[in-house]
């Protein structure tokens, strides 16, 4: 009985986790650059940090999408 309950619990947790497993979504390549530069990097106010972030976006875009 205990084992059955444990198994049931595990299945439930798994199901809940699969349904609720929602990380911050990264958009597909056709939207990636705009999203990365204009939504993600927006948190950096300083132009230097912003430009670093933007350069990284361009690098990721070039590596993964082109």
């Amino acid at each position: 009985m205990k084992k059955v309950l444990l198994a049931l619990f595990l299945v439930l947790v798994l199901l809940a986790a699969i349904v609720d497993f929602s990380p911050a979504s990264i958009p597909p390549c056709d939207q990636y650059l705009e999203w990365c530069v204009f939504t993600y990097c927006r948190q950096y106010y300083n132009p230097d940090q912003y430009l670093q972030c933007v350069n990284k976006c361009a690098e990721n875009y070039a590596l993964n999408c082109l």
Binding site: L33, V37, F38, Y61, A62, L66
Partner: peptide
């Protein structure tokens, strides 16, 4: 270049 195109997008914001 490809990276140039990406940057032109950024700098034309």
């Amino acid at each position: 270049s490809k990276i140039g195109q990406a940057l032109s997008l950024i700098y034309s914001s």
